[in-house]
Design a binder for these strands. Structure first.
Lengths: 345, 345
DNA sequence: AAAACAACAGTGAACGTTCACAGTTTGAAA
DNA sequence: TTTCAAACTGTGAACGTTCACTGTTGTTTT
């Protein structure tokens, strides 16, 4: 019959060997229930014997579904290309796992927003949807996100959860998480708690953490001192210089809540240079629980985001959107990991 | 003409608008030189206006080339899923960049070797070739690798470079790199240098580093003491316990060369607990230059692998193989990064 | 006993490209 | 002028699936 001398077998070859029509092979392997158990098994066996695999391109072309999603990073570009924020790497692991569990393939790209992502990925039918991952001032991307949504691009974003942005968003409940840190420090008897990290609305995640801290203080009857907040992006250097500014400001403080672990690590270096001991003089709490957090001296107390769950929820939300049912934004709770940097023994 | 009510435009729509035939559109956008400059520009403009993108699936199906490669990790599974070896994450960044530069898409998977990779990726035409990344006892995979090669799967592997394994291999010159570490420690006046890491042939990378150390010692007229080698896989815990064993063995040593930074970090913890100071009592050199290496106290001297180059070379080698021209294995030189853990000021 | 319905399998077309080849025009060489 | 190749563009088919129907059984209902 229609067998060709080419190497790779096609569904026609399987069909011929099984004595059925080619579409039946397709149905059988796809698990369509309109194929009898008997012929399905036979077909599967033959497919295995002949080392046959469904051609992904043909399948995607015909069905208009690639079963692939694209993971895009839009982190503020760091000078050192290879230095990716460890938190996102953990997210990457989690998302990889979640997609694999759903039988999806995962494309990744670190390209920046200037590129036309929807064109490159979804419009070209490479992927059925996009997951966006990134810190930074994402407000500049909001318009773009809205545009994507309007064009029918399916997007799930990790980040600050707010109702005003389009597309599905999944993120840690930063306010609750910030409150955790604040409550912990208050419990440790700290009263003058500094915050290192941008706290304005351009950085809604950091902003939420700050608000959580403030509200925890308020609950304890302490008024937050706005002069103890110092801007910092999420790098070790920025943490270092923010802590320097804090120290040089001459203001009194007995604790630091850093908006990220990298900031915290930079701050610890600054404190060490200034001769302030951790946790005796200054208790410190970070955010993210990156691997390095447990390796500092003393080990860093931090707020862990539920990364494992995050990947699942992102993928779940994206799939829902692709299939037409929209899910509401999801907030995941943070969890406090107490280590040596915040408790005096 | 053949325009459909569907949303996405096809090359037919472009062709109609441009007044040419559909294949001409395909040729023009693909950069085929047999289309006149004038019509090409016109077609490109119209394509831009109509927001047209070439359908990846149709293109791949017809041309039998997906312009996609799959990156597969076969690291020894860690209990904690989300904890990926930082070194590989850096490699991931580098490979992402290299593929993007070549206009390739990158699929990634952390699944383990048990799965039929070639079936899942290359045979199904998802990808044109595979890049394999992983530490660990890869000898168990060698047979599998050979099989893949025989089946016509295109594979480039990162790891120990030896001529006996099939497929293209790219890796750091571990012997040279180990020698760098050894020479450095000798220069610092160290004589009794311990090695932490598996040194047998099942771990060819660690083994190469050990051989490099031994040869550097030999060049300096020092005989290596085999009793100072202690097994360790590349985790912080294993580094810690290997260092414990070393200390408890009662043997004298004034330096440690750890086969990886994680091992080194674990070893530093063990040394601290035992009251030995770094670098005064014990100089220590790691391997990989992971981000955490610069954050330890003292900062860790280490051997950096040329990760940026590694990604390029891997992709280059894989493409060559796909296109039928086989490249020889490539060794990349390591580079010593001197920090505080190995020099007494 | 006829009609109606599952359950299953086959037929032809369609998805949107790229490929191989066959035309057409143009300008230069004979 | 005639000839021929180069430079372009068009035609028809092919890549390997999945989709929408149609057809065939065998079983159940009225």
């Amino acid at each position: 019959m229609g067998r060709k001398p080419t190497g790779r077998p096609t569904s026609f070859d399987i069909a011929y060997a099984a004595g059925v029509s080619q579409p039946t092979v397709s149905r059988a392997l796809r698990g369509d229930r309109s194929v009898s158990e008997k012929t399905r098994e036979k077909i599967k066996q033959i497919a295995r014997d002949l080392n046959y695999t469904v051609d992904k391109n043909a399948s995607s072309l015909r069905s208009q579904r690639s079963n692939t999603i694209a993971l895009l990073f839009f982190e503020d570009p760091t000078p050192d290309e290879s230095m990716i924020n460890p938190f996102f790497l953990a997210m990457l692991g989690s998302i990889t796992k979640a997609t694999a569990d759903e039988g999806l393939d995962l494309l990744i790209s670190f390209q920046r927003m200037e590129d036309d992502w929807h064109v490159r990925y979804q419009d070209s039918h490479r992927a059925d949807g996009l997951i966006l991952l990134g810190y930074g001032d994402y407000t500049q991307y909001r318009e773009r996100m809205d545009q994507l949504s309007r064009q029918g691009t399916h997007v799930a974003r990790w980040g600050s959860v707010s109702s005003d942005s389009s597309g599905v968003t999944v993120g840690t409940d930063n306010v609750q998480a910030g409150r955790l840190a604040g409550e912990h420090l208050v419990e440790q008897g700290r009263r003058k708690i500094a915050f290192l990290g941008h706290a304005d609305e351009h950085y809604p995640e950091f902003n939420g953490r700050y608000r959580g801290l403030v509200s925890a203080l308020a609950d304890a009857g302490i008024e937050a001192d706005e002069g103890l907040q110092f801007d910092a992006l999420t790098t070790e250097e920025e943490g270092f210089s923010a802590a320097r500014s804090l120290i040089e400001s001459g203001r009194e403080f007995d604790a630091i809540f850093a908006a990220s672990d990298l900031i915290a690590i930079g701050a610890m270096r600054a404190l060490a240079e200034a001769g302030r001991s951790v946790p005796e003089d200054v208790a410190i709490v970070g955010f993210d629980d990156i691997p390095a957090a447990s390796m500092t001296t003393p080990p860093l107390t931090t707020v862990m985001q539920d990364i494992k769950r995050a990947g699942q929820v992102l993928v779940e939300a994206l799939l829902a959107q692709i299939e037409g049912r929209d899910l509401p934004p999801r907030k995941l709770p943070g969890k406090l990991i107490v280590r040596g940097s915040s408790v005096t023994s």
